[in-house]
Amino acid sequence: MTTDIDWDQPIDPKPGWTLDHVKLYVSSGGTEGQYWNNTQTLLLTTIGRKSGRPVRTPLIYGEDDGRYLIVASKGGDPAHPLWYKNLTEHPEVRIQVGPAVLQGTARTATSEERAAFWPQMVKHWPAYDEYQTKTDREIPIVVIEPAA
């Protein structure tokens, strides 16, 4: 685990609904913001691959056997989201799920895992299927394993 990172001073999203969502989540200690638009969200903090600073992003999540699942969809954009690029270089992450703040390690799901997890994640956010049709890239699913 990276020890010289100040996880408590992350870079938050630019002004807009995502920043508003992060502020609500954090200011309420996770009692508000976890549930959004009929689904569940967590706050993912990655280490910026260029800045070396923590960067926080709200994302929809699923769960599988104590692990957290997130989808690197970027709405079907041809490029991966920046948070995904960050964690492929620096797999150490922090997540906030409701009031719980956890350190963990992130990795891209294997092809077999993705095949199993995709329908589960579409149940959380049906638009993922539409996003996949908009891009030639296979949209990755990320598995976050909390540290023991």
Rank of each mutant, 00 (worst) to 15 (best):
Q103A: 14
H80C: 06
L102H: 12
L69Q: 03
V71H: 05
A72V: 07
K23N: 14
L87A: 01
T2E: 12
P91T: 01
P54F: 09
V122L: 12
N38D: 15
D65A: 15
A148R: 10
K123H: 07
H90E: 07
W83F: 12
I11R: 05
E32V: 04
Y61T: 10
P140E: 07
W7F: 00
W7L: 00
W17F: 14
V26R: 15
S51H: 03
D8H: 09
T110Y: 04
N86L: 01
P119A: 11
D20S: 14
S28T: 05
K85E: 13
E89V: 08
T41H: 13
G52I: 07
G29H: 09
K134W: 10
A109G: 11
E112M: 08
A116D: 13
S27V: 03
N86V: 01
V101K: 14
K23H: 11
P10G: 11
L87D: 01
L69F: 08
G52R: 10
I5R: 10
P78M: 01
W36G: 04
E113F: 00
V142E: 00
A115K: 12
T46W: 01
P99W: 06
D6M: 05
I141W: 10
T135N: 03
H90P: 03
I60M: 12
A79P: 04
P54E: 13
H21N: 08
A115W: 02
S28C: 07
I70C: 11
Y25I: 10
K74L: 11
T2K: 10
P146M: 07
D77S: 15
D6E: 12
D77E: 14
V93W: 05
T46I: 07
Q120D: 00
L82E: 11
P78E: 03
S51M: 12
Y68I: 10
D64V: 01
P126T: 00
I60Y: 08
M121Y: 06
P99Q: 13
D8C: 03
E145D: 14
E92S: 13
Q9I: 04
V93Q: 04
D129Q: 14
P126Q: 02
I95D: 04
E145K: 10
T57R: 13
D64G: 00
Q40E: 15
N86C: 01
R53S: 09
V26C: 08
N38T: 04
T39W: 00
E145T: 15
K123D: 12
T41L: 05
I47G: 04
T108H: 00
T2M: 05
P140Q: 06
Q103P: 08
H90L: 04
H21D: 06
S111Y: 09
V55D: 11
T3W: 02
W118S: 02
D8N: 15
I144A: 06
Q96I: 10
T2C: 02
H90I: 02
A115T: 14
G48L: 09
A72C: 06
V143R: 04
